[in-house]
Each structure stands twice: as C-alpha cells, then as structure tokens.
Simulated scan of single mutants.
Amino acid sequence: MTDGQSLLLLFVALYLLECLRWLPPRSLLLLGHGSSWQARRPFQPVELAGGSPALLAFLPPLQAHVTTLPWLLVPAADGLEVRADRLRPLLLPWERLSLRTEGRTLHLAPGHRVRCLSEEHARQAQQQVQQWAPLAQEAREADFLRHAEATLKSDPLIGHAEALTGQTRLLRGLASLIFLWTFGVLVALYRWLGDDVEILWAAGVLFVLQFTQAVVFFRRARGLPYRFWKTLAIALLPQHAMRAADHFCQVAMPFPSHPLAARSLLGDEAWKKLAAQVWKQTRYQPAATADLQSRALESFLGQQGLAVADLEPAPAQQPGSALYCPGCQAQFQAGVSRCQDCGGIELRAF
C-alpha cells in the first residue's frame, strides 16, 4: 500500500467518525432538507455513557438533521418512571431522587441517569422533576399532559427544520463538492498520476475549497461556541469541512419535540407507521404510567384524525389460532388469556 492509499483510508475513517453521533437510545433522528425527510433510530443494542450510536447520511447530497425525543421521564404515584431505553421502564421512588446535571446527562439517583439532547434540556428536565416531587399525583399528571401537548406541536419542529435547511444550504453544497473532490477526483488523479508533483495541484484545489467553506462557516456561525477553532479545523481538515453544517444542526431546540410532531416532514405513510409503533410501545409495555401516556397520545392522535383502532389492526389469522396479542401480534390457541411476553397483556379474539 502506498503512502497516498494509506492517507486516503485515514481520511475515510476520520470522515466516518465525524458522521457518528451518540444520542439518547430512544431518540429519533430526522435527516433531510426542504420537504424531503426520513427517520433513523440509534443502534440501541450498543450503549455507552447513556447514549447509542447513530450514523448520519454520509453520501452526497449531504443533509441537515434534527433530533427528536419521546417522553423519558413520566410521573407516577409511587415515583418517577424512567423510560430511557427499550427495556422495561424503571420506577424510582420520589424519596430516592438526587438530581444533578453533568453536561447533557441528568443524574436521577446513584447509578441511574438519562442522556438528554443538550445541557439546556438536562436542566429543564431537572427543574420539571423537582416541581413534580412535592405535588399531588393529580397535579403531576396535569402538568405532564401540558408538557406532552407542547412537545407534540408541529410548528416549532417544522420552523426549526426549515431554518436549518436555509442556514446550511450553501455549506452542504460546498461539503458535497469537497466530498466528491476528495474521494472521487483526487483518487482518480492519484491512480492516473501516482505520486508525481501534478497531484499537488489537485490537493491545492481541495485546500481552496476548504478555505472557502471555512469563510462561509465563519460568517454564518455568529453565536456558536468555539467558532474560531471550528473554523480553523474546517480550513485545514477535509473531514471537518465536509461536516461543517453539522455544527448548526447540533444546536438543540428550546425544548425537544416528540417524534410524532414530524408528520408534515415524514409524510402520512411513514408517520402513521411511526404512530403505530409509538402507540404499541406506550400502551402495551408494562409500565406504571401507560394509562397516563396513552391519554396524551390518544388526544393528540384524535386531533390528527387518526383513531386508535386504526393503529391496532388484527394480524392475518393462522390456522388453529383463536386469539392474538395487540402488543406483539403473537397468536394463541383457545385457553390462553394473557401474553406473558408482553407482561400479561390481555389477548383479543379474532
């Protein structure tokens, strides 16, 4: 392997690392621009420091991204229910809570923490739990329902996505050009010219593109932390120049939107599929707050013109089956009344 090939492999590895994000395991990543968006979940089986890896779109045309977050903390009568991952929710008694924030991590009690989208989100969650602790359960539920309604509003999420699209359009265009020049033109020229001095002219063009990207970024990045150092990295390193727009996308919204707020971004078909998944995970997962969250979702879905019955269609009946589980869709013969795999959900007849 030549020095040029080794350098190219190094650039590929560094670029993929720049495309990797560690997000709350139950978050939903929205990728796209304009009116074209798609959803992607973090890889939940891998978890480190409360986060799971998610890979951004790394091929041109490069996209903006927005992270949404379902309800991770829900008040129950006996304690705070923590729904930070796909496993059974954890119920922490109110008297055990010892709240503190560390960056974007909210520590709830010794050995228990949740990862938020930003330091501001972590502080907001801390304040909310502190407000719930001394209240009666009815007051907690009322406050949670108001919070849930706010996170399900689509206007803040749509406005944020539109602002990101416009703010990063030029940066994403230049990033796509830098990607094609780095991994396309330079590779072809190196294969043709080898280590001759002419290849340095092509590398000079890459530097000019990076410098242009750095100038555009610096002019638009007023208010971003570490603006100068980020600009310097964009000017000198191709992988940073290709991901320059991500610095704007990582600025979190004032409060996190629920994934179901993205209906107009995802389109009706993808949104209804997502709504069915969220409904089943909420309604049929063994949890102390399943009824409370279901009330919030049922009210929202009704406003969207979607009946709960539409989210729970019966599966195609298999020979010999008389009952099915509305949660996991497993089928059973007569004589069984509950699905033990779903925590004792009552079965339904076909």
Rank of each mutant, 00 (worst) to 15 (best):
residue 100 R to M: 10
residue 71 W to Y: 11
residue 70 P to A: 12
residue 52 S to L: 05
residue 100 R to D: 07
residue 72 L to M: 14
residue 52 S to G: 11
residue 96 R to Q: 14
residue 67 T to N: 06
residue 54 A to V: 15
residue 55 L to V: 14
residue 62 L to K: 11
residue 77 A to S: 09
residue 65 H to R: 05
residue 78 D to R: 15
residue 73 L to P: 05
residue 56 L to S: 09
residue 64 A to L: 08
residue 53 P to D: 11
residue 51 G to Q: 11
residue 66 V to C: 10
residue 61 P to Y: 02
residue 98 S to Q: 15
residue 94 W to D: 07
residue 49 A to S: 10
residue 52 S to T: 06
residue 70 P to C: 13
residue 57 A to W: 10
residue 80 L to Y: 03
residue 101 T to F: 04
residue 64 A to N: 13
residue 78 D to E: 15
residue 69 L to Q: 10
residue 85 D to C: 09
residue 76 A to C: 12
residue 49 A to Q: 12
residue 48 L to Q: 08
residue 67 T to D: 03
residue 50 G to R: 05
residue 98 S to M: 03
residue 85 D to N: 14
residue 77 A to R: 14
residue 99 L to I: 11
residue 78 D to T: 14
residue 73 L to D: 01
residue 48 L to H: 09
residue 57 A to R: 14
residue 83 R to G: 07
residue 95 E to K: 07
residue 97 L to M: 12
residue 83 R to L: 13
residue 58 F to Y: 14
residue 82 V to W: 04
residue 57 A to M: 10
residue 69 L to T: 00
residue 54 A to K: 03
residue 67 T to Q: 13
residue 61 P to V: 06
residue 80 L to I: 09
residue 97 L to K: 06
residue 72 L to V: 15
residue 58 F to E: 06
residue 84 A to C: 04
residue 82 V to P: 05
residue 79 G to H: 03
residue 86 R to K: 09
residue 69 L to P: 00
residue 58 F to G: 09
residue 52 S to M: 03
residue 85 D to L: 08
residue 61 P to W: 08
residue 63 Q to W: 07
residue 94 W to G: 02
residue 101 T to K: 05
residue 51 G to L: 04
residue 68 T to I: 11
residue 85 D to E: 13
residue 84 A to D: 12
residue 75 P to K: 12
residue 91 L to R: 08
residue 80 L to K: 04
residue 72 L to W: 00
residue 77 A to I: 07
residue 79 G to S: 06
residue 80 L to F: 10
residue 80 L to V: 13
residue 69 L to A: 02
residue 68 T to P: 03
residue 71 W to H: 15
residue 91 L to S: 07
residue 91 L to K: 03
residue 87 L to C: 04
residue 95 E to Y: 02
residue 79 G to A: 10
residue 80 L to G: 00
residue 69 L to K: 01
residue 93 P to G: 07
residue 93 P to F: 01
residue 78 D to M: 14
residue 51 G to V: 01
residue 94 W to S: 04
residue 101 T to M: 04
residue 60 P to K: 04
residue 99 L to R: 06
residue 55 L to Y: 06
residue 54 A to W: 02
residue 83 R to K: 13
residue 61 P to C: 06
residue 93 P to T: 10
residue 59 L to F: 13
residue 67 T to I: 15
residue 67 T to F: 05
residue 97 L to I: 07
residue 81 E to I: 10
residue 82 V to I: 14
residue 99 L to F: 06
residue 95 E to P: 00
residue 54 A to Q: 03
residue 67 T to C: 15
residue 55 L to C: 10
residue 69 L to E: 09
residue 87 L to N: 08
residue 63 Q to E: 15
residue 55 L to I: 13
residue 88 R to V: 09
residue 78 D to I: 04
residue 78 D to F: 05
residue 71 W to D: 15
residue 65 H to N: 01
residue 94 W to T: 08
residue 65 H to L: 12
residue 100 R to L: 11
residue 59 L to P: 00
residue 96 R to M: 07
residue 77 A to E: 13
residue 57 A to N: 12
residue 78 D to L: 13
residue 94 W to R: 04
residue 58 F to L: 07
residue 100 R to W: 13
residue 63 Q to P: 00
residue 95 E to D: 11
residue 66 V to F: 05
